[in-house]
Design a protein around this nucleic acid. Structure first.
Lengths: 217, 217
DNA sequence: AACAGAAATTAGGCGTGCCTAATTTCATTT
DNA sequence: AAATGAAATTAGGCACGCCTAATTTCTGTT
């Protein structure tokens, strides 16, 4: 029905919309690794197909139709990630690139059969919720960063301790509301945790620190 | 490494070569549903890449490199067919089109992980052997058409009865050495069998007929 | 050997999705 | 309000993989 490129643009716009701000041509270009000029071409094309609405002022926004398709692609992506991780034994950091390819496989009820085979998982190996066929997303709840298992990712939604030193430390680490954190490893010796903050390189933080950061899967 | 189209051409040439005769541009065109002119373009391209050798006189033939790639694609295709059939419950006639898409997924050791997950199957749901990583194919042995299970496909390799009436009947049905037959259904009442001959529509033959046709999976 | 029909090839063209370079529009500072 | 730097857009082009139409080459008859 839609080309691989179209699906990738819709997915990119979906993800960027979730971040809250305006979805600009250049942010899409950066996400997809394309030139902004190419992005403008495609935005025109999928606007004509009524998959998005776009103007320079407000950026790109998915129409209901576009959103349905984007969610379907994300659903397939995350289901395949679960498959690759749980059935084929790939580690959580390897699954993404393969699922990038598998998400475009087209067949009537492939996603629901896969869903059933996997036992109707709610989250992918990174902790991201799997969209349901009707387009709903599982609720995510606030929990402490210290409870997250290695390999999972989460987003910061709050903090327990409001101590200024703690806040400055958070700022220094570039952690704020919405920051994505991936647990790389838990050190048994002292409970400290190796984390990846957003797309930055890895850092080690103490168990006490992790306890005071509230996250959602 | 290679484009989807290139892989499809190599796979088509591989299958046509297996049929024995010369692999002509027009036979490839027919297999892929493309125009012969387009085929010539691509044959030139993949000849340059040393994936095939081609001249009008002898047709197309895979080089060692081309054969390796073709077998790898066929391996992935058939492994995914097993997955779709055994794990997702698709029937043997639905799996092909989905596997057509999945065979192009690229990742280092995906095929071997899938192979292991599936328990190292030797045949796909149509009875075709799954190429091994080293390129070898499981042996196929001559058995009677009457022993093939519904859903499986096989190729005619010989006959038991050499009676002329029988031979004429075979000819009338367009069955010869190499003809692919798919068992659609076995009728319990009289042992007759519904078969699909090559790409033609279905026919029903008697149990006696089936006993006298020798096939390989 | 000449010819007809089939097969292969060449020539020219098209849509997709990308690019670079040049230009225009926008947002922010002064 | 003018200036400036960033973002968006336009213009023109390219590789891929396909097409149709025209031509050439091959093959099997006569």
């Amino acid at each position: 029905m839609y080309t691989l490129s179209e699906e990738n643009y819709l997915k990119a716009i979906y993800r960027l919309s979730a971040d809250g701000g305006k979805v600009t041509a250049s942010s899409i270009a950066e996400t997809l690794g394309n030139n902004p000029a190419s992005v403008v071409d495609m935005l025109k094309k999928i606007t004509t197909k009524r998959l998005i609405r776009y103007d320079k002022k407000h950026g790109a926004a998915l129409t209901e139709k576009g959103q349905r398709i984007a969610l379907q692609v994300v659903r397939k992506h995350r289901l395949w990630e679960v498959f690759l991780h749980e059935k084929l034994g790939y580690s959580w950091d390897e699954v993404h690139d393969i699922a990038e390819q598998m998400e475009h496989i087209q067949h009537e009820d492939l996603d629901s059969r896969l869903d059933k085979f996997l036992g109707f998982p709610k989250y992918d190996p990174h902790g991201d919720p799997i969209p349901q066929p009707n387009g709903t997303l599982a609720k995510m709840s606030k929990i402490s960063l210290s409870t997250i298992e290695p390999g999972k990712s989460c987003h910061v939604v709050g903090i327990k301790d409001t101590n200024a030193t703690f806040l400055r430390y958070l700022q220094k680490l570039n952690i704020g509301i919405g920051t994505k954190i991936t647990i790389v490893e838990r050190i048994p010796f002292d409970g400290s945790v190796v984390i990846a903050i957003g797309r930055q390189s890895q850092t080690t933080v103490s168990g006490k620190f992790a306890e005071n950061v509230l996250v959602e899967l």
